[in-house]
Amino acid sequence: MFAAATAAIIAAMVLALVRAFAGPSLYDRILAGNSFGTKTVLLIGLMGFLTGRPDFLDIALLYALINFASTIAILRFFSYRRSREEA
């Protein structure tokens, strides 16, 4: 069951990658990066269960924090740039 879930997560990662490669707008790329980070969190959690070491779940939680903070940083950055360009 965990193997099937891992395969599904990998497929979702590939889909996010496609959006990051093709994404016509900047928001597509930001969203692709953010959702890819979420998929990484899920994948690491699943990897722990897959190898019989659920301790990996703590690491996955830390990744979720990093992903959140970096997305906020990117968006904040981007909003500043936007307000400057519109002026």
Binding site: A20, G33, T40, L43, I59, I74
Partner: peptide, 24 residues
Amino acid sequence: FGVVMLSGIYSLLSAAFFVSLDAV
């Protein structure tokens, strides 16, 4: 900008690979 986002994705991927190698 796309390259910067891709490099973030690259880091996440290699981090997942390091976890798989037990180098948490």
